[in-house]
Design a protein around this nucleic acid. Structure first.
Lengths: 334, 334
DNA sequence: TTGTATGCGTTATCAA
DNA sequence: TTGATAACGCATACAA
């Protein structure tokens, strides 16, 4: 690999001049510029970004931490963020936190030590205090899908509670009263918020929440499947199931069908997230829209605005979930 | 952020000694070691990996390039690789190539310039020569899902042609003769290999390939949908559809149902990849298993073996696809 | 407009 | 077992 020094030799200019044309900030005469450009070309010179980072303390890359690398939800968020960043010539460095405190911290520290210019964090296991501390360490970052009052300006969120409320309200309005709920891992704030919304809707309709109608799943297809199994085994009656995400809804629908229950004639199902595949299930899944793309882009904008562009634009911090009505919920009022 | 220098001062040892305990390679007396460790703790010292990389020309991280960050296929591959690497304390730096030559090259060069110790590449648009050249540049890398004879030792592949053959053979054995084919973008080698396998199976059964039964999709749900629309519009008869991946199969099934065609009674459908969601579609999708997890782990092993462990283990380079029979294909022999 | 010199935070090669 | 000191490849303040 050619270095800046070899380029400067070949172009017979100083090292600093080469650096100038690389970053084309300082004024360089057209003539010497061309000389340098030519030298760079013949040497097939590529700047060593590590050295650049060390010298300038900037890396032109932002670190992204998501819980898992797999799964439609995370991957489409990463994708949106990466696309937005790359438009500005910035790169994404991505790593996974695995919903584990130690692992999440490790990931964050790794990204920092790689001198990322900013971080976009989808963390779940790390404490609020850790993040508040992170802010004090003067590391620019936003959290996605996690709200912490003390650092509200750094949070970009969906109103998960409202989403849960909307989903169950819809079921209630369609005449359902015995509503099973398949939750995500309840220690995760988004899972518990969605569940709280569910409870609020029930309360509003004066329906008593039955603890036997709650199953705590894992946000994956398998969780939905097991939830249905559980409800069926206990023999409790339910006319609808609200699922905390689309994957579990898909698993639930599959399990219901296997047990001979028609959807939505025997059991209605509603999901959450509005992932792409929910348009292609059978029946097509009614769900709550999570504007992943918008949130991803917003997170990227936050970074770009705060860091590179330097104009402090106002940014949307709280996004509103919306009901998406398709074919998996039946109106049993009639 | 504390530096190695400050640690050395606090521990009143030399800078070199601190470096030694960080990398605990050289011999350091227990006593001074503890002094240094204590100093590191009180200063909350974290090594600057950028500086480490620059000085040592290693980064303890491997670069991964996939076509897209979204999509079940890529994301589960990334996930498997990352997991395997992290087990050895190595980090993954991930970026996207977007199936575009310029973008893929950019991604590769970015990873190199970040001084990744090795690369795992899922590239599509870049030429064979570029990769052969890359090998000459002495950059350790493996390609996934792309076979290049000249650098066979660096390739980890699925036998896509065989997979396409198996899928269509299965359809033929079940009595189907009018088989529509929804391909991926045919300029991609995996898509065209799968299609070639399809043709070989047809030839073996002495079924003439009908060009009107071919639709070139985009590997996404939408492609399957459009494929079905296209076939239906042309009014051509078909009793089965082979899809080049599961997403398109899902789209195709959805479109068929919308047009009132039952699956598999009216039309049989087979997919490719065996993504998780294919177990949860309705009907459950028959497909070809792509051992993504095994391939991801193998790629990671290659890197680990070649780079860090230094024992040259034999590694599987060609993986064999397998038929997964579920409910979406009907036997019409009877 | 260009060049010189210093520093970024480490590793690694010498000596001691 | 330890300590100086020179790289690593580049950015940048200061001089010219």
């Amino acid at each position: 690999m050619a270095t800046i020094y070899q380029v400067s030799e070949l172009a017979s200019v100083s090292l600093a001049t080469v650096s100038r044309v690389i970053n084309n900030n300082s004024l360089v005469s057209e003539k010497t510029k061309n000389k340098v450009l030519a030298a760079m070309k013949t040497l097939d010179y590529r700047p060593n970004t590590v050295a650049q980072s060390l010298a300038s303390n900037r890396s032109n890359s932002v670190g992204i931490l998501v819980s898992e690398l797999h799964g439609s939800f995370y991957s489409s968020m990463m994708s949106d963020i990466e696309l937005a960043l790359r438009e500005f010539g910035k790169h994404a460095i991505i790593t996974a936190g695995h919903s584990d405190e130690k692992s999440e911290k490790e990931g964050v520290e790794f990204l920092i030590s790689r001198s990322c210019d900013a971080l976009i964090l989808h963390v779940e296991a790390v404490s609020d205090d850790y993040l508040i501390d992170l802010k004090k360490r003067n590391i620019p970052f936003v959290t996605v899908n996690r709200y912490i009052p003390e650092i509200a300006a750094n949070c970009i969120c969906l109103d998960n509670e409202l989403g849960g409320y909307i989903a169950t309200s819809f079921l209630l309005k369609q005449g359902h009263r015995e509503i099973a709920y398949i939750a995500g891992p309840l220690w995760k704030t988004d899972a518990s918020d969605r569940y709280k919304g569910h409870l609020r809707a029930l309360a509003e309709f004066q329906v008593k929440a039955n603890p036997r109608l709650l199953y705590e799943g894992n946000f994956q297809e398998e969780g939905g499947q097991k939830g249905v199994q559980y409800f069926l085994e206990t023999g409790i009656f339910f006319s609808a199931i609200a699922c905390a995400n689309d994957e579990m809804a898909a698993g639930a629908m599959s399990a219901l069908r296997e047990k001979g229950r028609d959807i939505p004639d025997d059991v209605s199902v509603i999901g959450f997230d509005n992932l792409i595949f929910s348009r292609y299930t059978y029946p097509k899944l009614s769900t709550i829209n999570y504007p992943i793309s918008a949130i991803g882009k917003t997170a990227a904008s936050w970074v770009l605005n705060n860091l590179y562009i330097n104009r402090k634009e106002d940014i949307q911090h709280l996004f509103t979930p919306e009901l998406v009505v398709r074919d998996s919920v039946k109106n049993i009022n009639e």
